[in-house]
Write a protein that binds this DNA or RNA. Structure first.
Lengths: 337, 337
DNA sequence: TGGCCTCACGAAAACGTTTTCATTGGCAAG
DNA sequence: CTTGCCAATGAAAACGTTTTCGTGAGGCCA
């Protein structure tokens, strides 16, 4: 590997001069600078990020902390899409991306925070993880620049999908289609779920609609089986709903399944709505009416805010940014009444 | 950050001794070693990966090179699952993972190879990308440890899903169900597609079945729309097939759609098979008969081979490892005849 | 001519490690 | 009591940068 020393030798200058010339310092003569740059290019020089990081304490490397569990991190459409967007934005700004995990080093298990320090990461984005574990809290409370997605901590920047508005839009739409008996099979308990449930109730309340307890079912995200079972229970109710909300698009398929198995049809016999707007939702029959979440925007804003936090720490711009989605009208909600 | 120097001062020894004690060298007295280790833990010491990398030329960081294009890297179920598995295996062996991209540094665009050098990556895994571009070739031909997935280069290690066997298994199964008029809507042209197509023909040939040109349609992977159009064309044939192979599970949904729109039913009127075995395939009605690819194994083996290549370069073990999948029988293929 | 300022550049320290080699002290063998 | 040897430790260089500070040359003005 060709280093600055090699260039310095070839140009008969000092390494200090080479460094400055290559980094565009102003106190190097135009002629010398251009000569050095030319030689550097010719010799195929590239900086050594480790050496640079050692000196500057900046790695231009961003950590992403995802669920460690198999089958719920990268293979999760919603978060994979966010990560993809995050990656694109970060890379366009000159940052690389490294996964943060609990790693082993020197025979000792490192916490997330320790791992970040070890790698000298400039900042971390956290998503899709249990935000209440001590490990995560340690990281969030550290001095490291941190941006969280879909979860809020005091004094830290959060990019969150607007679940309140999203759910309200869905409810408003469904009501405008004439539905009044509306059930909700919701996902596991977390802040996103709580937002959606309370918005669900409030929006219905504003339409003068109340929800019997039997219309609320607890399933899990991305769990078609459980959602199918919940749907079956709903279908057996004497006064069954005319429309059912599901945890997300993926699990909505389970609901479709239950309807079909019962010898009924979507939306003729019962309407279904999803959440997320992943490609699959548009592949179903009928197409699923759902709330598309702007994953691209979420990932991009997370990257932008994180980089802003790193490069200009003083300006704590926002604390919480809501990203609104969009209702996608499919064919899974029947107009009635 | 507490460094070795701090520990050395506290223990009244030299940094050399600290380094050796922490790294388990044998020429440090048991007593001293334990004392140093205790103090290190107490002071919350962690090594600095940059400094270590600078000295040792090893980063314990692996690059992954995925398609740069939005919407075809991380959001691709098959590759996301492989990546997930790769990540898990690599991390359990003490390696971190960084995305490799064409990055900007010092006002100059870096190629993939240059990027790897810049970051000092110990090795790279390449997947789901156009393997024929000069950029990729530069990397593959470099001296860096490289493992490719689903593509073979001379003298480099490749982990590839056994598409030949997979397709043969599918064909054998479909034939055993009595089908003889079998069409194939295949994906974009690449080595995987070529393997599948030729295996498709050979397997059918062995069953004494020939395929009319009109039974071969070119669609694209993960493209439900195009696959739907191809399916419509097939349905309009005077002597239409009884069974249709699709590029993958995802696009199979398009085929389902076409069948439904034509007022027909799967599998009663026409059978459909997919490829991949992603979770979605089991959410369709009827469940899709498909060939599940062992993404976990692929990712794991890729990581293991890459690490072996890095840690014991002499033993070039395998050159190409085939990972076999498994036929998943759904309800989308009718037994006839 | 002398003084002073600016401009270009270089010397050297520092970042936190690893690793080679030298140096101790102690102890067994002669 | 030497000699030699091993075990334990330390000094120092090196990895490739960045950055502070110093220095010399030249130009400008009085």
């Amino acid at each position: 590997m060709v280093s600055m020393k090699d260039i310095a030798a070839r140009c008969k200058v000092s390494v200090a001069t080479v460094s400055k010339a290559l980094n565009g310092y102003s106190d190097i003569g135009k002629k010398k600078r251009e000569e050095i740059q030319a030689v550097a290019k010719e010799m195929g020089y590239f900086p050594n990020s480790s050496a640079r990081a050692l000196k500057t304490n900046r790695t231009y490397d961003l950590g992403i902390l995802f669920s460690d569990n198999l089958h719920s991190g990268l293979t999760h459409d919603y978060f994979a899409a966010i990560l993809d967007s995050f990656k694109v934005t970060a890379e366009s700004r000159g940052y690389d991306i490294t996964f943060t995990s609990m790693n082993m080093v020197a025979n000792r298990r490192m916490s997330y925070y320790e791992h970040c320090r070890y790698r000298g990461l400039d900042g971390v984005v956290i998503a899709n993880i249990d935000f209440t574990t001590p490990e995560v809290l340690e990281l969030v409370r550290s001095s490291l620049p941190v941006v969280t997605i879909d979860f809020t901590f005091d004094g830290r920047i959060a990019i969150v999908s607007d679940n309140v508005k999203g759910m309200k839009d869905l409810v408003d739409y469904v009501c405008s289609m004439g539905h009044r008996r509306i059930a909700y099979i919701h996902g596991d308990d977390n802040s996103v779920t709580r937002d959606r449930i309370s918005s669900f109730h409030r929006a219905l309340y504003n339409h003068g609609i109340s929800v019997p307890d039997s219309y609320l079912k607890k399933s899990r995200y991305r769990d078609g089986e459980t959602t199918m079972l919940c749907m079956q229970e709903l279908l057996e109710l004497k006064d069954r709903p005319t429309c059912v909300f599901t945890p997300d698009d993926f699990s909505a398929v389970g609901a479709y399944h239950a309807v079909q198995e019962a010898g009924l049809k979507v939306p003729d016999d019962i309407s279904i709505v999803g959440y997320d707007g992943i490609p699959m939702s548009q592949a179903l029959f009928p197409k699923l009416t759902t709330l598309w979440q702007d994953t691209k925007q979420i990932g991009q804003r997370a990257a932008e805010e994180l980089i802003a936090l790193i490069e200009t720490p003083k300006t704590t711009l926002i604390e919480k940014e809501l990203i609104v989605g969009k209702l996608m009208e499919g064919g899974s909600v029947l107009k009635i009444g």
